[in-house]
Design a protein around this nucleic acid. Sequence first.
DNA 1: TTGTAAGCGTTATCAG
DNA 2: CTGATAACGCTTACAA
Lengths: 325, 325
Amino acid sequence: MTKYKLEDVAKLAEVSKTTVSRVINKRGYLSNKTVEKVYKAMADLNYQPNAAAQQLQRQHTKIIGLIFPTASNPFFGELIEHLETILYQKGYKVILGNSMQNPEKEEDYLSQLLSHQVDGLIIGTHNFNISTYKKYSGLPIVSIERTLTDEIPTISVNNYKGGVLATEFLINQGYRHILHIVGDISESMPSSYRHQGYLDAMANHGLKPLQWQISFEKTFDEKRSSIKKMLSKNSQIEAVFAGNDTDAAQLMATLNSEQTDNIAVIGFDGTRLMRAILPGMASIVQPIEQMASMAVQVLETRIKGEKTEPIYMLDVSLYKGNRQV
Amino acid sequence: MTKYKLEDVAKLAEVSKTTVSRVINKRGYLSNKTVEKVYKAMADLNYQPNAAAQQLQRQHTKIIGLIFPTASNPFFGELIEHLETILYQKGYKVILGNSMQNPEKEEDYLSQLLSHQVDGLIIGTHNFNISTYKKYSGLPIVSIERTLTDEIPTISVNNYKGGVLATEFLINQGYRHILHIVGDISESMPSSYRHQGYLDAMANHGLKPLQWQISFEKTFDEKRSSIKKMLSKNSQIEAVFAGNDTDAAQLMATLNSEQTDNIAVIGFDGTRLMRAILPGMASIVQPIEQMASMAVQVLETRIKGEKTEPIYMLDVSLYKGNRQV
DNA sequence: TTGTAAGCGTTATCAG
DNA sequence: CTGATAACGCTTACAA
């Protein structure tokens, strides 16, 4: 409420500002008597140090910036939650920015946050061409599932394997006309390898690939129309491998309402939420918590100025879905 | 990368620090010529002001703290996303803290963030007794769906009406044995009024209330066991009003897997996500975006030091669910 | 229209 | 063991 400063504490404890600072930071030699006096004074005033002053002096903020498309998608929601949890344990706070459908905002966050407002950045989005990121190379940035520049390390999963796993899961059940719903296609998205996995698995079994594109940024309403159009244009399909779980779930809802639940579906992400509320839906599960802790670990070595690998790839696994909960 | 300061820009542009500061903040009279020189110098150096120094001087941070149980629940995910979007437009950044199952963390965020690290706080959680909050009264805090102290304004929805609406929706379909799944019960949670609405609606129709408790903090696995137990102990029930959508969805999944889909279910929250992937599930929808903008609006008047109401109540509506998507 | 100097609240250096 | 004093990088009177 009323804002006290070091000086007020010092006065009350009848010592100097330096001494107070020392007891707060537990630095140097202090007599027990003064330590106690100071603690008492701090408690009496309910003193809290001014973060801005500390940051200015210490030259770091102990804040990490998180830039993701949206907090409302379960995958990002869970990722953000894990990141915050891990970072908090390490003494960091977290500034969150949602960049969805707003490249200017993304660039704004990048430049503002990096100017002494955060100690590092974890990015799971990018609406720019690589060149925009070039000027940030060398800074403590880690990217999740995006390729930004050669300098910025990427935390990724084995998307190719995921694509193969999903496709073969469907093929093994006897389906032949299998469609793949792809999201945004860009070389900077490792998720494109899911598509390659699908393509290769289909080819290996002599099957003809079919695909449909639904951009991640579309609203649910737009996605629903797109799904319906896809269904009406591909009457022969028997199974669908969706690029992510929400698309898969929306597809299942549509099939359900049209009594065509003989079409098999598999998604991608395997969040806790989706497996809890749609346990019957198969999915490729990403190790979200592991991705978060790897991202933090790599970011920390970056902050220390140490060398990191260009890419860290984690494993995925198949969740077959289970109607017998 | 290399960190430049005002002085470096000033030197390059051959003016004083003051002048550079003026052009950055567009304050006072400047000749076009100097303005341009300065802009050029800033661009050349890719200069970015030091946030800590600005904050120290200006005595505000333009950061708002958001403390919520978890980012991974769709309701909070969407709420957080809307809050971030609105706050960003108003020039604020957002520090996010998840407090779930960690009261110490919550208190830590409270005290740390309020000490000059943020200009205000939006809180959607509380693991404490009211007294802990007393010392923060008067500070720029707004709470969402929690009652903290008399001093802290609450943004809430008409939970009572929601409870009535949900219950009557089921009654009107002819169900008589209707169970209500309640979450955490505490006077500080306006959501308790959902329960009261249920109770009153049942009584008005001469029906006997039945309830089951599932704490919000439980894991999905724990919730699933609890749901199964509830089902086996209440074989006579025909319909369930769940306190939130994820519980409702998990219940539906369980019913589904046990071929007992003759039990009707209605949830509470009505997030975009849930309505998209489970369009068949009825729910009471909260106006999440409106709650976010109301929270920001009230917080801003608090920051200005102006008076606010103790409570702001928003309306809810019934989403009947729709199997014909 | 521009510059000088003081001050925001800490921490670090250097004396004592 | 403790205390002056000078930074940290910016904004803002007050002068010119």
